[in-house]
Each structure stands twice: as C-alpha cells, then as structure tokens.
C-alpha cells in the first residue's frame, strides 16, 4: 500500500507540472491545464499522507 502511495505521489508531482509544460508547447488548452492540475493536486494530497506520515512517525 505504501509503495503504491509513493508511486502515486511521484506521478502526482509529475502530473502537476506536466499540464503547464504541455500548455507552453501548445499541446493542451488552459481549461485542460486547470482541470489536470486539480486532479493531480487531489491525488497528491490523498496519496502522500499515507507514506509521509508513517515515515515521520517511524
């Protein structure tokens, strides 16, 4: 579970910045940037506490 959460966290960070990069490259429009950034933001805040809190307690 923790390993999966870590993978999702890494993907979330990549996912947070990728829409902006794709927007600069004119691959997606601004509405899609906003949508995908929100999706990956939610994913980051759901997945990261699962491993980060345990690591802190450990």
């Amino acid at each position: 579970m923790r390993t999966l959460a870590r993978i999702v966290s890494v993907l979330s960070l990549v996912g947070t910045i990728t829409p902006a990069v794709l927007f600069v490259a004119s691959r997606i429009d601004l509405a899609q940037v906003k949508l995908w950034m929100l999706v990956w933001t939610v994913a980051w805040f759901v997945a990261t506490p699962i491993w980060m809190d345990r690591q802190a307690k450990g």
Binding site: S12, L13, V24, M37
Partner: peptide
C-alpha cells in the same frame, strides 16, 4: 506535505 507540490505549482504559474 505541501512543500514539493507547492514549488511545482509556483513553477506552473510562471510557465502558464
């Protein structure tokens, strides 16, 4: 929790 994500959002502000 938010620190790494926040840095990337700040970069995204600039790129957009």
């Amino acid at each position: 929790l938010a620190a790494p994500w926040m840095v990337l959002v700040f970069i995204a502000y600039g790129l957009v």
